[in-house]
Simulated assay, not measured.
Amino acid sequence: MPLPKIEEIRDLNDQELNDQIVATKKELFQLRFQKATRQLEKPHQFKHLRHRLAQLMTIERERQLAASKSEATEE
């Protein structure tokens, strides 16, 4: 399974982006829980989910900065 592409994330609207962030955090929690109970079968999923979460949060931050920059130019 290849790492997800950031172009896919840029196509999401703000609500979908927030939903994806929450879902990814829940998946990471589940993986940590599985690891603690020694039921984890695919440890490489940690890398993929952390990468995906970083991408999601990067796009979210870019949008926040763009919004604040546009508000500052309007004033």
Rank of each mutant, 00 (worst) to 15 (best):
M1A: 06
L40G: 03
L31P: 03
N13M: 03
L17A: 01
I59T: 02
R63I: 03
K47R: 14
L49R: 12
F33L: 10
A36W: 12
Q39V: 04
T37Y: 13
P2A: 06
K26P: 01
H44W: 14
D11P: 00
T24Y: 03
A36Y: 14
D14L: 09
R50W: 08
L53Q: 03
I9V: 11
F33T: 08
E75C: 07
N18A: 12
E16I: 06
E60H: 12
L28T: 04
I21R: 00
E62Q: 13
I9K: 02
Q64E: 11
K26L: 12
E74R: 15
E60R: 15
Q55G: 05
L53H: 03
F33Y: 11
R63Y: 01
E7D: 06
Q39G: 07
F46I: 06
L49D: 01
E60S: 10
R50P: 00
Q64V: 10
P4F: 05
K25L: 09
S68K: 15
E60P: 01
A54E: 13
H48T: 13
E62S: 05
I6W: 03
Q45I: 11
E60V: 04
P4I: 06
S68A: 10
S68F: 10
Q15I: 10
E75P: 02
F29E: 09
F29M: 08
E16P: 00
Q55Y: 05
M57N: 09
A66M: 11
M1Q: 03
D19Q: 13
R38P: 00
H44D: 12
L17R: 04
D19A: 09
E41N: 08
H44Y: 14
